[in-house]
Amino acid sequence: MIWFMIAGMCAVTFVPRVIPLLLGRDLVLPGWIRRWLSFFPYAALGALIFPGILTVVEGRPWIGLSAGACAALLAVKARNAIFPVLAAIAVTVILELAAT
């Protein structure tokens, strides 16, 4: 039962991820669809950040928001994501320890 489930989950996860890449760039798409596709990453980013960031520490949405604000400020200057990420981790740990 478990193994059948794992095999099935593997198939239905793998196939949708791979088919578009197999068709790849051979597919000629009209300009408005290409424009639409090009904004997918930003739309996904918005949905991935919010509302999830409110629940980094359950019941204390302001901790996630503070860490996010800190990351945003640092990201304006930083050249890669590592520094903002480490700072956000530190803010989260310190704020949670301070709040309890």
Binding site: L45, I49, G52, I53, G68, A71, A78, T92, V93, E96
Partner: peptide, 13 residues
């Protein structure tokens, strides 16, 4: 939980 914020910070960055 601190490490859990890493993905959000990366998304923002």
């Amino acid at each position: 939980r601190g490490m859990g914020v890493a993905l959000y910070a990366m998304f923002i960055a």
